[in-house]
Structures are given as C-alpha cells and as structure tokens.
Design a binder for these strands. Sequence first.
DNA 1: CAAGCGTGGTA
DNA 2: TTACCAAGCTT
Length: 386
Amino acid sequence: MIRGALRPLSAPVLAPAPLPRAQALLEWYDRHRRALPWREAARDPYRIWLSEVMLQQTTVAAVTPRWRRFLDRFPSVEALAAAPWAEVAEEWAGLGYYARARNLHACAQAVAARGGFPDTVEGLRALPGIGAYTAASVAAIAFGRAVVPLDGNVERVTARIAAVEEELPGARPRLAALAQGWMGQEEAAARPADFVQALFDLGATICTPRSPACALCPWRGACLGQRQGIAQSLPRKAPKRARPVKQGVHFLLTDAGGRLLLRRRPPSGLLGGMLGLPGTPWREEAWSEEDALAHAPALLPWRRLPGEARHGFTHFELRMALYTASAPPGLNAEGEWLAPEAAAAALPGAMQRLLALAEGAGAMASPARDAPARGAAKTPTPGRPA
DNA sequence: CAAGCGTGGTA
DNA sequence: TTACCAAGCTT
C-alpha cells in the first residue's frame, strides 16, 4: 500500500525508519533489566523450563512465589519425575491451566529417562507441554541458541515496530519472521539469552498493551507504529465471543473429625486431575433440587446454603450452589477425606470458592482461607424455581 | 484452526 | 461491573 498518497499534503516527509538496532536494545537492557529470580539461576535448564511453563498466560507476580516454592519441593527434574501426581497437583493448585502441571510431570519423566534436557529447539519441541514458544525460549535462555520466542510481548513489540496492521493470530508467522530477523544482527546473536529477555522486558515495561511509554523506548527512532501514531492500537486482534453462564451444584460432606470429602476429577478436561467437591456437571440450564441431589455422594438430609459461589473461567462464568451434610459414622462414600486446611491447599481456585462460601455461612469447622474470596459469597437467590 | 483450558490484576 | 490481559499448549 502507498502510504504517502493517503497523507495530507501538509504532513512532513519522513526519512525511512532505520532497522531497530540490537545493540541499542541490549544497552538499554544492561541498564534496566528486571531482577527476576529465574535469571539468577544462570542457564539451569530445569529452572528456566519451570519458569517458562509457569509464565504461560500467567503474570510474573503470580509466578514468583510459586516458582520458589515448587523448587523447594522438587529441587531437580529427577525429583519431579519421581514424585507422585497427587503431590505435583497439590503444588500446582491455584495456578490454573492444569494441563500444564500434567504435561510438566510427563515432561520431567521423559527428560529424566533420557538423562537431561535436549539442547535444540526441535528436541525441546517434541516434549510434552513444550510448544513453539517454550522450545525457543529454553533454547535461547538456557542453551544460547539464536532463536526468538514469539510470546505476547514480542508480538506486540514487533507489530508496533514494523506497523503490522494484520490481525492476530493470522499475523503471527510474519511477526515471528520479523523478530527472528532482528536476531540476525551480530550483536544479538552474540547474546541470544539477553536479546530475547530484553525483548520481554521492553514489552513488559515500555511497550505495554495500553499507554506505552514511547518516550523512554530505546527503539523509538525505529518504530513505524509510533511514527504513524498507531502504536497503541497494535497488535490488532479479532473480537472475542461473549462468555455464557453455567451452573452447578456441589456437596460439602463433613465427617465427625471435621474432614471434607473430595474427589479426584477425570484426568483430562476442565480442572483435569485435580481434587474437587463432588457435584453435578456444569451446564447452562439451571438444576432442579431433585436432579441435583441425584449427584450427591450419599443419601443424606442435605441443606442448601444461602448464596452461591461464582468463578470466572476463560470461556464461561460459573455459578455454584452448595449443599452441606454431616456424614454419619461408618458412611461409605467414594472419595478422599481431607482436613479443611489440606483441602484448601490442594483445591483449584474454583473449588476454593465453595469452601469460602461455606466458611462465610459458618458451615465449616475451620477457615479455608484467611478471608472469603472476593465476590464469592452472594446474596441468596430468591426467585429461582427449585 | 478455532476452541478449550484458570486465575489474578488493572483500567 | 465489565473487559481485557499475562513469558501458550493441545486437540
């Protein structure tokens, strides 16, 4: 497209933008690099890999304490490989995207069996849970390979520097090629780990999604998006669909010792492999009390707590009702009995909302958390037909 | 290839 | 409150 022809005649004539210089970015990085804990673990592929998997769609603030705790519990890839799944699940509880934990465990076993991590992009890419991004990231950061991982930061920086107006995800191959092209400069190829982390930091601290700090950007002079005044609007993305509301009913069964009945969820799918409270499936149609009670773990005088627990997933909004009962001595119910503290630690966030609801209603012997989760407890739903 | 898959923070 | 977003992968 011929940009010049569409500009007002009064627009100044701009010199062609220079190629973004790797050296300029690296000098900025040497002065402003963020002190992240996994950057201290120089080139240990286990720690680098663990950080990359945790950081998938997850913020640095959420990952930092969990990364430390995980390494305390599983100090090596061999230790992780040897651990039972229940321990890995407990350690990952609350972090979300639980397929990551399942793949992490499987990957550790594969790596331990072959005697260490592969040191090429192709070798890494073949492991469970390692896609194009993580393979390139570990290859560059842990093994010094001159490859650029395309994450959300690099997508944004690249789309803006080159003023790529094509929408994601279609633009991804073009953006990847552009970013990889920058790695072709001698200064970048001499420091691949620093160069990719410099791109991450630039995206995270300067070239942010909203209100980028262009005045502070080391690549400002080379940025076509900034020059055209469209940087903030890039990269463009297809609009997202509305999230439906789904409903479920769950059951909190307490024994004489105050322990709770939990069940391991099926190994794949939503919250796969994690513990949860027994309950109905989640569906858009409301549950009648009769239909819901058919999913109760035992035939008992169940009492519905007022209010509901709410939890937002990526693709739907969940509202859960909670019934409670006390287990008579000798009751035979399928599942595992856990103390409330152990349950709170091992449950995914959606299920923790139910414990918070019970705690708020005074239906539990001891607190599940310091305080009920935000927005968990709601006013009773008055009108819905039972 | 579009959809499924969590959670917490911010505007 | 709603909407968007964060160092994505799998099917």
